[in-house]
Amino acid sequence: MQQLIPPFDWHRIFVQPWTTDFSITIWVVLMGFFVTAACGLVGNYLLLRRMALIGDAISHSILPGLVLAFMIFKHNSTWVMFLGAFSAGLLTVAIIEFIHRQSRIKPDAAICIAFTVLFALGVALMSSLESQGTIHIDAECVLYGEIAFIPLEPPTVWNGMEIGPPSAVRMGIVLVVVALAIAVFYKELLVTAFDGGLAKSLGMRTSVWHYALMGALAIVVVSAFEAVGAILAVAMLIVPPMFAAQLSSILPVRLGLTVLHAGLSAVLGLHLSVWLNCSGAGAMVVAAAFLFVLAWLGTMAGSIRNRSLAVDRCSRDENLPQVRSL
């Protein structure tokens, strides 16, 4: 046990990352924040549409897309990988719709079948490539990524200026694009998420917005994939919006809380991973889940207090006539 949990050392855990290791820490935290915020913003709309697990499905099924794109184009430039993963994501949604519409299989089973089969295909292809010795993809890296390697990438240079690690820069751009898209299409996204019938009567194309959201989801998940892996991308899609929904029922507030939650869980996660010497992305998920549990307990305590106050008031009101009669 002693070896498993290192002793708690304030200086090593909280001071050192921000002084001596600043250049590494800042990019890990920024990447974590970008991923969590971008996923969380999209996730808010998934949560409203009760499609939280579609994100789960897409994030698993982009694996065969990546492998096939590599097999076809024979090199792993970002755009090729992105194209493969994106089309695999849309294919998943299409397969789910096909199975669900064309047969008696229920949508939940359809989701489960679609993504597990695609994921199995991806792992099978990958391991056969590996046994031929052509490439080596770390299979576990697909599942939980490695955020600690981000600062080690050779930095992107733009106009002679070093900006930062390319994946962090890319994720930052994705976050900005997602935030802008939500700001521009706020009304459409709001109406289609809450009331499809109203949206149709206002002349909006609901299926177009559905697929636009799926496309945005695929983009976010694909770019988050290499940093946090498939399953932690799912966590980032679901946990921040749940945190926000626990605290507020007003959508703009929820979006703001999501971003706040993203920042907090990135910083907390970093410190946790420094302390326990464990996977950075995993620690960020644990921090995010911890924050949700805090919010959950807080609202539960609040509702219990409100209820007891209300009970008090009621009993007082009931006693009033008796008091008067005395």
Partner: peptide, 13 residues
């Protein structure tokens, strides 16, 4: 989704 992701996160740690 919450249980899936957060338990898995703990597991990975």
């Amino acid at each position: 989704g919450f249980v899936l992701a957060s338990f898995f996160g703990v597991g990975i740690c």
